[in-house]
Design a protein around this nucleic acid. Structure first.
Lengths: 348, 348
DNA sequence: CTGAAAGCGCTTACAG
DNA sequence: CTGAAAGCGCTTACAG
């Protein structure tokens, strides 16, 4: 069944069938009805490739989830508590607008090419790039070719410095404000000896969160011991090793700020196994507010990242840009929020 | 940049360019090299729509996640601990084979049409249907049109009775064996008063798990009180209400078999809030083995559903069927496994 | 081994 | 308001 068949059955030309399918205004109601009846009777849907080849949109966006670290790390990308709701939100939002989503995981540097490829093969109208170590060269290439896309959690300076024109939306949250809120909360509880379990420094949020920690402590005139600055790489296992080292070292901070919830959960487990009580012996905070954060005991005090809103914004911007003719670079910083639960108390 | 440009630059015809792109054997090494050089220099990728229209595969499969219940339920599909790893596995497996994945969520009955539509518009070569209330009519239609697909967690009798020919793979796990193992484990601990928190009866696994419970208890000659048979619908909130009713009723079973982990987690929370100790006062078991199952206290004894393998099988079968000429209906039942953790003990 | 040509199923100026 | 025709960018018999 093709449009030609519909045309014959309805007694019109293919042109007219096409006009009713594409909702042209200059089709008399009667003709439209006649054609629609045949279309519906045969459940006709136009061949998408033919439409695209003839110049229509694909009505598909690509979602690229980049994570070199996750490849070997046993938690792959989608069982990652951070990416999962993001994927969810993107698909929901796109589907609600009649847009399909092509999801791709990027686990190796070589796979970066897949991003360009999906555009160049014209499988998608636009893209959303989320994840960690995103490659500026690929991103700049895509922008230069004029394809619209959103990047999540990416340095806007890096983008602005490298990309002069293009249609791109950069969507971040206020990581620095989040760290400030959580540290000031700890200080209000009486803490001065505050350690950090940092994330990966080759990610934007990893850097910003760490730098905000240094900045806020400086501002208050506290200087943490060198041993309290742990490098957790955003990974549970690495975090566990670092925390174990800290415990063996002996002199603990009274509070430990973890740069994501996964590491905070890991830290809690290691500390509890070492017969330390949380929050009595040491306060722990997280970042992200993933689902298990509220399930563990003690429930984790953390900073909520508005992942769902960020995903929706990414979709909305991308859809707007598909329609737009002019190109612009827009930066969005969505608000983070302190979520106080049970993992913090005053020192000793 | 199109194949015609490549042809001109390489000094050959479009036919020859096409032959090297499609790896035809009858192209001399020298010609191939000459063309490949130009292709690589310009990072040429053929327009996918043109290829598909000319008769090639889309190299894309559709993943349809059906869940009417999840729409209003606040946990949407992908933040569902069951679907998330499934989506993960499908994308990983497909991407590893150079296949794209178009993900769609089906939240309303009207959306069922999207499944057929994706096929008829020729956006995909094959599909994978997972989720709950799957519609036999749509499935039968797709099969009748000759499109290959895999269904997960679906009654094979229903399929075989309705679909006479087509290319379809039905992928289930041994839900009945899982329930048997968990109940026999409880019996070995000394339990005789075993209740159930059942799932949705309009799902295959919901029915099978419940029926297996009745069958095994019958076999051992135990008959549970009517009040011990709770209807949780696979939903946390509903489960919580049912368990609360049970607590208020007073006479508790010594063990409660929950038909998924979400409900088991919910049950544990309600019972603990009612000052009951688990497993001392009552033993709890789950089904699925989702990630939080091992994180809660006490860690949940449950039945592991081999979700990852099921997803891989679904992809592998679908890819096999795309290549195959003949049509068949194949049924697979992957093994479940008892995972003993800390939520069960002997009665009193 | 290779090119000219037909064809895939649409859309959209163009002309009437 | 509507049809005939060109064109989108490929692939693949066909003929040589």
């Amino acid at each position: 069944m093709k449009s030609e068949d519909i045309a014959r059955l309805a007694g019109v030309s293919r042109s007219t069938v096409s006009r009713v399918i594409n909702n042209y205004k200059n089709v008399p109601e009667e003709t439209r009805k006649k054609v629609m009846e045949v279309i519906e009777r045969y459940h006709f849907h136009p061949n998408n490739s033919a439409r695209v080849l003839a110049g229509k949109k694909t009505d598909t966006i690509g979602l690229f989830i980049v994570s070199i670290a996750e490849r070997t790390n046993e938690n792959h990308i989608y069982r990652n508590n951070y990416f999962s709701p993001f994927v969810d939100a993107v698909i929901d939002r796109a589907n609600a607008n009649g847009i399909y989503v092509l999801v791709n995981s990027i686990y190796t540097v070589k796979d970066y090419e897949k991003i360009k490829q999906a555009f160049v093969e014209r499988r998608i109208d636009a893209g959303i790039i989320v994840g960690t170590e995103k490659e500026i060269d690929v991103i700049a290439d895509v922008a230069a070719m004029g394809y619209p896309f959103s990047v999540i959690d990416y340095s806007s300076e890096k983008i602005l410095q490298r990309i002069k024109k293009g249609r791109v939306a950069v969507i971040n949250c206020t990581d620095d404000e989040g760290i400030r809120k959580v540290i000031e909360y700890l200080i209000s509880l009486g803490h001065r000896d505050i350690g950090i379990l940092s994330g990966r420094m080759n990610t934007y949020s990893g850097r910003v969160r760490y730098e905000a920690y240094r900045e806020v402590l400086d501002e208050y005139g506290f200087s943490p011991m060198e041993e309290w600055v742990l490098k957790g790489e955003f990974i549970k296992k690495t975090a566990a090793q670092e925390v174990l080292k800290l415990v063996n070292h002996g002199k603990l901070p009274t509070a430990l700020v973890c740069c994501n919830d996964d590491m905070a959960l890991s830290a809690i487990e290691v500390l509890q196994n070492s017969r330390l009580n949380i929050p009595e012996d040491i306060s722990i905070t997280g970042f992200d507010d993933i689902m298990p954060a509220s399930l563990v005991k003690p429930a984790l005090t953390t900073v909520r990242v508005p992942l769902y809103s960020m995903a929706q914004k990414a979709v909305d911007e991308v859809l707007r840009m598909i329609g737009a003719t002019s190109g612009n670079i827009n930066i969005f910083n969505l608000e983070t929020e302190l979520v106080v639960r049970d993992s913090c108390a005053g020192p000793h």
